[in-house]
C-alpha cells in the first residue's frame, strides 16, 4: 500500500520535472522565503536577547518545524488541497471504485514541489538551530527529538485533511475554510506566550498548531511556562489523525457525485 502511494507520487514528480525551469523558480522562491525569515529574526533579536524566554535559535527552530510540517504536507499530501475541486466537479467517482483507500488516492493526487525545498531548508534550519541550542541530550531526549517532530507533522497534515474534508459539506470550488486555517499557521511559528489569551486558546485547543512548534520544542529545550505540555504532542497527533479520518469518511458518505 505504501509502495503504491510512492508510485503515485513518483509519477506526478516525473511529470512535474519535465518543466525544469518552473521547478527552479519554485525552489528559489521557497528558499528565499526562509532567508527573509532568518533576516527578519536576526534583525529582531539584534535588539533583545530573548523573546519571552525564547532565544534566536529557538525561534529559528520553530520556523523550521513549521516549514517541515508544511513541506511534508505539500510534498506527500498535496492532493488534499484538490479535494474540494474533485467534490465540486464530481471527479471522485473512479477513486471510489478502485481497490485502494480513497483517502490515500485523494492525498496522492498531486505533488507540491515546494514541499521538497521546504523540507530541506527547514531541516537545515532545524539542525543548525539544535546545534546552537543548549540541549542536554540523553537517549530518551534524542528519541523524543525524533518522535515529537514526526507527531508535529502529523498534526499539520491531518488538520489539512480535516479542514479540506469540510468541502463535503460546504459545496464550493475552492477550499476557502482550509486555506484560512492554513494561514493561522503564520501565527504558530512564534512562541505561544506572546499572544493574547484568545489566540493562545485558538492555537492550543481549537486549531492545535501550537503542538507543531511551541509545545514540542518547549519540552526539548525546557523553555516556556509548562514544558511538559510537549509530551502531549503524540496524543494530540493521534486525536487529529483520527478526527481527520472520521471527517473524511463521514464526508465521503455524503458524496453526491455532482455533474452528470
Amino acid at each position: 500500500m505504501v509502495r503504491l502511494y510512492f508510485r503515485f507520487l513518483g509519477l506526478h514528480l516525473r511529470a512535474l520535472l519535465e518543466y525544469q525551469s518552473d521547478f527552479w523558480v519554485m525552489a528559489a522562491a521557497t528558499v528565499l522565503i526562509q532567508v527573509v525569515n532568518l533576516v527578519f529574526l536576526s534583525a529582531v533579536f539584534a535588539r533583545i536577547p530573548t523573546l519571552r524566554g525564547w532565544s534566536f535559535w529557538a525561534v529559528v527552530a520553530m520556523f523550521a518545524l513549521m516549514a517541515i510540517a508544511e513541506g511534508v504536507g505539500s510534498f506527500f499530501f498535496e492532493g488534499t488541497w484538490r479535494l474540494s475541486e474533485s467534490i465540486n466537479q464530481g471527479s471522485l467517482d473512479y477513486a471510489l471504485v478502485r481497490p485502494y483507500p480513497v483517502v490515500l488516492q485523494v492525498t496522492s493526487a498531486e505533488i507540491g514541489i515546494n514541499g521538497l525545498t521546504n523540507i530541506i531548508t527547514g531541516g537545515a534550519m532545524l539542525a543548525t538551530a539544535l546545534a546552537h541550542l543548549d540541549v542536554r541530550w540523553s537517549v530518551g531526549l534524542v528519541l523524543l527529538a525524533v518522535v515529537l517532530p514526526v507527531c508535529a507533522v502529523m498534526i499539520k497534515v491531518s488538520v489539512n485533511l480535516a479542514t479540506n474534508s469540510i468541502s463535503f459539506w460546504l459545496a464550493g470550488p475552492s477550499p476557502l475554510f482550509a486555506m484560512a486555517v492554513h494561514q493561522v499557521g503564520e501565527l504558530a511559528r512564534y512562541p505561544l506566550s506572546i499572544f493574547p489569551t484568545a489566540l493562545k486558546a485558538t492555537l492550543g485547543l481549537v486549531v492545535p498548531f501550537a503542538f507543531i512548534t511551541t509545545f514540542p520544542l518547549g519540552f526539548l529545550l525546557g523553555t516556556g511556562s509548562s514544558p511538559w505540555l510537549g509530551l502531549l504532542t503524540p496524543l494530540v497527533a493521534a486525536y487529529c489523525v483520527a478526527l481527520a479520518l472520521v471527517a473524511f469518511s463521514r464526508g465521503l458518505r455524503r458524496y453526491e457525485s455532482a455533474g452528470n
Partner: peptide, 28 residues
C-alpha cells in the same frame, strides 16, 4: 467491477496512457 463513465476520464491528465494503465495494473 469495472466502470466507465463516458463523460469523465480516469486517465491521469499529465501521464502517457501507458503509465496510466501501468498504475492501474499495480493498483489491481
Amino acid at each position: 467491477i469495472g466502470v466507465l463513465f463516458g463523460q469523465r476520464t480516469q486517465l491521469w491528465w499529465d501521464l502517457p496512457v501507458a503509465d496510466s494503465l501501468a498504475v492501474l495494473r499495480d493498483l489491481y
